[in-house]
Write a protein that binds this DNA or RNA. Structure first.
Length: 182
DNA sequence: ACTACGATCCAA
DNA sequence: TGGATCGTAGTA
C-alpha cells in the first residue's frame, strides 16, 4: 500500500487494513505472507495510546509521517507491530494483532496475537521506523483482498484499562487466526 | 537509584 | 488467575 493509504484518520485506516497482506522476507530468502485479520486503532487523544502523554523517545515515530513501522517491547518478552497513521506531526497508529497463517486450527496458529506474530516473524525493535510501503524492505504491506462489512466484527480493544469502551478493534469474522473471541 | 507498570501469553 | 521478565517513565 502507498504511504498515502495511511495518511487519514486512524480508525479508518484500521478498518481498511483488514485483508491487506503483510510480507516478511527473511535474510535467507524465505518469504512469509499473510492477510491481516485483526487490528486496533490508537490515536493522540486516546488515553490508552503511548503517544497520549506527548512525545516520548519510545513512541517518537508515531508523531512522524504515515506508513512507517512503530515496534515496541512489552512485558519484558514481547514485541508489537504497528503502522503509523495520520499526517506528519499528528500521532496515531494501528496495532497489527493477527494475520492469517493458514494454520488448521486456532491452537496451531503462530500469528494470532501481537506478541506471537512478532516472535514468529522475527520482528523486533530493529524494525522500528522502517517504511512499510516499500516493497524492498524485509517487512512491508501490500494490497490484498477486500473485506466486506458483513465479514467484519467490531469490538472493544484487548488488554487495556484506559478508554476501554472505545470500539476500535476490528477483526475478520470466523477466522482461525484471530487472537481472542468474545 | 528506586519503583510501578504494561497495546502479552500460557499454564493451572 | 497468576507468573515470567525487563524497558520505560516518573519520582527522589
Amino acid at each position: 500500500m502507498p504511504s498515502s493509504f495511511y495518511d487519514r484518520p486512524t480508525v479508518e485506516v484500521a478498518r481498511a487494513l483488514l485483508g491487506q497482506t503483510l510480507v516478511r522476507r527473511f535474510a535467507d530468502g524465505r518469504v512469509f505472507s499473510g492477510a491481516i485479520v485483526e487490528v486496533e486503532a490508537y490515536t493522540a487523544d486516546d488515553p490508552a495510546c503511548h503517544a497520549f502523554g506527548g512525545r516520548k523517545q519510545r513512541c517518537e515515530v508515531m508523531f512522524g509521517p504515515p506508513g512507517f513501522a512503530y515496534v515496541y517491547f512489552i512485558y519484558g518478552m514481547y514485541h508489537c507491530l504497528n503502522v503509523v497513521t495520520e499526517s506528519d506531526g499528528i500521532a496515531g497508529a494501528v496495532l497489527i494483532r493477527a494475520i492469517d497463517d493458514s494454520a488448521p486450527s486456532v491452537r496451531e496458529s503462530k500469528t494470532n496475537g501481537p506478541g506471537k506474530l512478532c516472535r514468529y516473524l522475527g520482528i523486533d525493535r530493529e524494525f522500528n521506523g522502517i517504511p512499510l510501503f516499500d516493497a524492498k524492505q524485509e517487512l512491508y504491506i501490500k494490497s490484498g483482498r477486500t473485506i466486506k462489512d458483513r465479514e467484519v466484527e467490531i469490538s472493544t480493544r484487548i488488554g487495556i484499562t484506559k478508554a476501554a469502551d472505545r470500539l476500535w478493534r476490528f477483526h475478520v469474522k470466523d477466522n482461525h487466526s484471530v487472537s481472542r473471541r468474545k
